[in-house]
Design a protein around this nucleic acid. Sequence first.
DNA 1: TATATTTAAGACAAACTTGTCCCAAAATAA
DNA 2: TTATTTTGGGACAAGTTTGTCTTAAATATA
Lengths: 145, 145
Amino acid sequence: MKVLSKASVYGLRALLYIVSKKDKSEYVSIREMSEELSISFHFLTKILQSLTQRGLLESYRGPNGGIALKLPAEEIFLIDVVKILEGENFFDSCLLGLPGCGEFEPCPVHDFWKVTKAALQDEFATTSLAELGTKISENRLRLSG
Amino acid sequence: MKVLSKASVYGLRALLYIVSKKDKSEYVSIREMSEELSISFHFLTKILQSLTQRGLLESYRGPNGGIALKLPAEEIFLIDVVKILEGENFFDSCLLGLPGCGEFEPCPVHDFWKVTKAALQDEFATTSLAELGTKISENRLRLSG
DNA sequence: TATATTTAAGACAAACTTGTCCCAAAATAA
DNA sequence: TTATTTTGGGACAAGTTTGTCTTAAATATA
Ligand code: SF4
Ligand code: SF4
């Protein structure tokens, strides 16, 4: 069961890499991240572009350029990243994918899934990059998967 | 968030269609199901072939042939179908996909996900085709999605 | 200005899922 | 036997996600 796409996972790992950097005043280069995290540079670039366009990151071109968080890591939550990279309706999903829901009575797993989904959304809405960052060592981010 | 693949959903809808048939002694033709459920005939054929090969269904070729459940609908559970069509390790999934789990301490969402995953597995393990079938009208199965 | 660095953006390719097509094999019926 | 029906199984095509490559735009430095 794949919950997040590669794009989301790569995006998250890059964000955590930025958080792990001590010097918050400097931009972190995408090239550096792609090499340290073993992620395709161009793919990562596009992922981070999406986050930049949606206001989660700030980018700067030229020598010593790169990207930086636009908010403190304490104020960026998993849900913010996921909603951008997976789509706004990521949490509107159906468990069985049977057609006609809403028009007729729900299937037996609907109530279960409604609760599970809400819990998942809440977990994502309350887990910040800062919280993730404190538990995930820099070494670990570098592993290939 | 997509939980099940098209293959799983199509497979489930076909099984529920079979369950909805009153006469349990007859084979249900794949052609009929594909037309009634608006699913590609050949795609559905391959999906059902997997279920047949894994012993969940019985097939019979020739005129009046088709497929039939090998067990009563009360004894076939969602988890049986999903494990065949999505793979045995469907429930072994990781939420964030960060590398190095097991070697290092788990990430902050790990405990939450462990519980959620177990609940999902339990829900699938205890929901039978019969239970699904009683709640899902035949009309509803025919909607395209 | 000229050059190097770095993100932005789009075209293109590889891999995976989904869907289509063709023919073989098994069973029925005439 | 011959024709028909139906599943079995492989090759192939379309669509999506993932990954690669090339060029443009912005910035810094000399
Ligand atoms: S009732 Fe809910 S969980 Fe069940 S198929 Fe419909 S939307 Fe999905
Ligand atoms: S700790 Fe658990 S949930 Fe977190 S990344 Fe690792 S396996 Fe996934």
